[in-house]
Amino acid sequence: METTTPDGHAHHGYIQHRDDYLKRLRRIEGQARGLQRMVEEEQYCIDILTQVSAMTKALQSVSLALLEDHLAHCVVQAAAAGGPEADAKLKEASEAIARLVRS
């Protein structure tokens, strides 16, 4: 669910932590560039795999934090409002969790 400010802009549950997410995603972007560089420089396979693992964990961390924000904000608001939107938000969250578990 999103909230709308008086000027009509939509805000999602993660907006309070937006700068933190951007900082973390920029760091992950740097890790991806570092991985590309390692492959270009023909670095040792295990060293590359170690960095892939670190990047994967960083992405998982961002995913879990976003999911937590979604549950605390969007799902809670929809549940409080009730109706079909509450069911839809719960189903959406459940599907997102399933995707995270499979990845």
Rank of each mutant, 00 (worst) to 15 (best):
R18N: 01
V39T: 10
A93S: 12
G13P: 05
R24E: 06
M38D: 10
K91F: 05
L100I: 08
L64N: 14
P84V: 03
E2D: 05
A58R: 13
E42Y: 04
V76Y: 03
I28S: 08
A80I: 03
V101F: 04
A86T: 10
S61I: 02
Y21W: 04
L71K: 13
A86W: 02
E40W: 06
A96D: 09
K89W: 05
Q16R: 09
Y44T: 09
L67I: 01
V101W: 02
T5S: 11
L22G: 05
R37Q: 15
Y14L: 15
G30F: 06
C74Q: 01
Q36D: 07
S63W: 09
Q43Y: 12
T3L: 15
D87Q: 05
T50E: 08
S94F: 04
A10G: 08
L59G: 14
R18S: 00
A79Q: 14
K57W: 01
A96R: 13
H17L: 11
L64R: 07
H12S: 10
Q60I: 04
A88D: 12
A96T: 14
L90D: 02
G13H: 08
D20T: 12
K23H: 08
E29C: 12
A86F: 12
Q31G: 08
D7I: 01
G83D: 05
T5C: 05
A54F: 07
A58M: 07
A54W: 02
G30R: 14
L100H: 00
Y21N: 10
D87M: 11
H12L: 15
M38I: 03
E40Q: 03
I15Y: 07
T56R: 07
M1W: 15
Y14F: 02
E40P: 04
V62W: 09
A79M: 14
R18C: 04
T56S: 13
T4V: 15
A88H: 06
R24H: 06
H12C: 14
E92Y: 13
V101M: 06
G83P: 00
H12W: 07
S63D: 02
E68L: 14
V52H: 08
V75C: 15
E40F: 01
Q60W: 03
Y44D: 09
T3N: 10
K57R: 10
M55A: 02
L22V: 13
Q31K: 13
D20P: 02
H70F: 09
S94A: 07
H11K: 13
A79V: 10
E40M: 04
A72K: 04
R33M: 03
V75L: 14
E92N: 03
E92A: 06
M55H: 06
R102G: 00
E95N: 11
H11M: 15
A10K: 15
